[in-house]
Design a protein around this nucleic acid. Structure first.
Lengths: 118, 118
DNA sequence: TCCATGTTTCTATTATTGTTGAATCATGGA
DNA sequence: TCCATGATTCAACAATAATAGAAACATGGA
């Protein structure tokens, strides 16, 4: 990932509605959610939601699939990982220990042992 | 971290100049860099740079310290980690394996064995 | 105190982004 | 084919963000 792509992805997430949509899809998992369900859950008008989904899609953060009349959107985890990689690249130059600790903290809430999913 | 704070942080990074400044500071490590050095390195006018540093600072992504006439800015790794934590929270609901793999990928470029820093 | 240098604030201008009603497109059932 | 429903595009407006010249502020040395 290069700077421009990262800026696009960050800008896509840097908006309250879009961030909520993205996190909702992250939590929804690989099945995703239909546009209608997302709009209903978040209270966003169809046109507005469509605009935001397009932004997220353009940034590569979500993908979609059609199923009957419904269109399901789902989060793209690989792109999210690429973004995190970009942000942390070369982060260790002057402080490898500090950085490692920080990264461990960052992941502590994610992928916790299978028993502790609340 | 909650949504609003995350949006602020993401918005701060979702701008080419600011993203460059932040990554420069990430690479500069804990010593940081003076405003003048940053501006010189990136070719940004003082007023513009000051504006962007204020944004990054307001987002909690950088801190500063005064040293003689110079002001040094440095990246705040804890805040970066908090942001990553926020983005990945609850990410495992439907796909723990996939998610773990993705996170490992995300960190592969960071904190690599001490020999491979290019 | 006065000056030089580093940084920030002020102000104005330009560009970009977010929102939504109405219209359009797409799919599947009667 | 016609209609109902789900989703997107269009158009127009309102709000926010980026840029930089000029002025102001802060620090340290002469």
């Amino acid at each position: 990932m290069e700077t421009k792509e990262a800026v696009t992805a960050l800008a896509a997430l840097a908006q309250e509605t879009r961030l909520s949509v993205f996190r909702l899809l992250v939590q929804a998992g690989p099945e995703g959610m239909s546009v209608g369900s997302i709009g209903e859950k978040l209270g966003v008008a169809p046109a507005t939601l469509s605009f935001h989904l397009k932004e997220l899609s353009h940034a590569g953060l979500v993908t979609s699939r059609q199923e009957s009349r419904f269109i399901y959107y789902m989060a793209d985890f690989a792109q999210m990982a690429a973004l995190m990689t970009f942000l942390t690249r070369n982060c260790c130059k002057g402080m490898p220990q500090e950085c490692l600790a920080v990264m461990e903290t960052a992941l502590a809430g994610c992928c916790a042992p299978t028993s502790s999913q609340t």
